[in-house]
Design a protein around this nucleic acid. Sequence first.
DNA 1: GCTCTGCTAAGAGGA
Length: 845
Amino acid sequence: MEQLGDLELLMEKSFRENVEPPAEQKVEASFSKTVLSRGVDNRYLVLAVNVVQNEEGNCEKHLIITASQLLDYKELCILRNNWCSVPVEPGDIIHLEGDCISHTWIIDEDFGYLILYPDMLISGTSIASSIRCMRRAILSETFRNSDPATRQMLIGTILHEVFQKAMSDSFDPEKLQELAFQTVQEIRHLKEMYRLNLNPDEVKQEVEEYLPSFSKWSGDFMNKCTSTDFPQMQLLLPSDGSNNNATCNIEVVKSLDIEESVWSPRFGLKGKIDVTVGVKIHRGCTTKYKIMPLELKTGKESNSIEHRSQLVLYTLLSQERRADPEAGLLLYLRTGQMYPVPAKHLDKRELLRLRNQMAFSLFHRINKSATGKEKTNLAPLPQIIDEQQTCKYCSQVGNCAVYSRAVEQQMDDNSVPVGMLPKIKEETQHLKHTHLEYFSLWCLMLTLESQSKDNKKNHQNIWLMPSSEMEQSGSCIGNLIRREHVKTVCDGQYLHNFQRKNGAIPITNLMAGDRIILSGEERTLFALSRGYVKEINMTTVTCLLDRNLSVLPESTLFRVDQEEKNCGIDTPLGNLSKLMKNTNTSQKLRDLIIDFREPQFISYLSSVLPHDAKDTVACILKGLNKPQRQAMKKVLLSKDYTLIVGMPGTGKTTTICTLVPAPEQVEKGGVSNITEAKLIVFLTSIFIKAGCNPLDIGIIAPYRQQLKIINDLLAHSSVGMVEVNTVDKYQGRDKSIILVSFVRSNKDGTPGELLKDWRRLNVAITRAKHKLILLGCVPSLYCYPPLEKLLYHLNSEKLISFLLLIFHQENMKVFVTYWVIFKEDKTLFLAFFHTSAVISIFYYL
DNA sequence: GCTCTGCTAAGAGGA
């Protein structure tokens, strides 16, 4: 009792000490628009932080907090034990888990959590990776594209997909073979194989080696007669208490979701759960049913702390949607071995502590001058660890060393472990002082830009503000009910129709094409899916979503929130990191960009232009004025870069153009032309963006392989629902817009039979009611007599447009933009040529 | 203060 009295006295004291100083009134929330609240989603503003010693001489942190906007109602939060190290400061926003008794929260070793900046959601994998090196975790969040994709990652991705498909289909060996084959053949995976110089057959073979383990796993854990037939495991749930027998039989009943994406503003976490499974835990004569996260791993069966931590974090994420799973399952697909991972309080506490440290580092990227007199500069990152082994294979080692030398070693209180100095030197020895300065400057500038007010995502409004309030800002529509069937456009794209439960849709800024986040009005259905607005009118919002919501009850109320545009500094930061690499290309770019080496030019055009391109180039130059022609010539002679400077409207963009060749590919499946296919998809998307109904657009190609490629591309774009067919299928029908891809493009003029058929061509070009776009390689198509006639006619009518592909380089990344001139006339022929001239341009502001 | 532009994203495995 006496102790308690002392404690109360202590509390009173700290209250008095901290409530009274006038300085406290100046405290402002670091997240300007944060909604302070109490209850499950509580958000407290920290007014004061006091470190005190308790009776036993242990350290405690006492926070004076408030959930009232007027700062008039204050509470106390006492942090004990390890929680004392949370880097919380006055002005911070925190979330508290636990009990609040007589205006006092006590967070200690065994009970309660503090979440620092809960609206900053950090991914499960990031936190897991911070266990070994916090600095690396922060660097990976910053320099996002520094991790090069590898063969193992591709195999891992493919295997995940095969397993997930099998989970909702079947683990029958023949079916698995089929699923594996399908998945390996998917365009995005083939692209990655091409990039990694891998053969699809060898990838398929490696994937197949895992399949027997898949079958073994499903045989072990699913569909048995009696509970004791399921594998025996050691698992105690926190709710089981300590004096229970840990041995149990685990049965996987069913899969409830795949790639479930969860944002948790309660724990400040986000992540994607590989598989969400219904599990029965049979222990003695009792059975517990739990819905748990199942995490798949294709690599070494390490059962490592990182892997297990990922599952512990996923049990926290799961609580956003349903009851606490208390445990997760970790499955190694190479062997089919599965480990249960209980989510103990100790593990959750330590992981959230790491999360708070990470949130602190991510939030405090800049040292702002307190008085306005000192220079604003970058804050140091978490300490470099002193473990050569860990750093040996770290993909962030380059960024780590450059940041240390360019930013941290310029500071007074910089401390690098002595053992790591040689490594840092080695990693940065190719860089001059000017390069380090450039890195430091741009890192600072980009970080400042990302922190500027209009670039901050205010996602927290979605979880903290009711839709009725958000609707007033025009970026939200609430009280929506799903109408009609969900149309599956393709895997991962589902068309949903929503209507307001009562009456018309309120006035809104939401427009077709906007990115949105779809949530249920209920808290547990928050951020269910993301996608685009496809169409919006007075009564209906049509959305293309990444999940099919028809599994939810029909009466579910939804809200649609506009996803705020995010200023991506990821690309420029990634480029900055690449610019510092020890490669010849980066060396050259540093020379030109940082050290301002003058660009070099060659003397004669004849040495760069292929002979047969002469006429083509002359033809283009005809359309340009004198300064444009001079600029064009300079560009063609450029070895490095050419700057074109001009007032707006003087025709810089017109000058920056080049012709791409688009060669055909002849394979077993038939003839195709990937460039044309991409362009068709691009043009289709332009028409849809311009307001055309996808159903009014038809795509025609004479070759099946081409149709397949176009279909695949459409399926992976936001377009979808556009009819793609051979000429014959359009016989007797018409569409508002028809796009034709002629496919053939080869120098030797091998004629294919298909295009010689005059009747087919006639059908193809007479299907369009309003706009006909023909796309093809002019010199190749001249080989076909019917097309020759057509081209001759189009040419005389000036209906042929040369297709311009614009390469432009911004933030050191090359973008390719198709530039198409739309004319008033109904018919337009977009033409390619065999030859190309590549132009590289840097835009400088 | 308005409007335009840039925009998937968490994790795929390694030791």
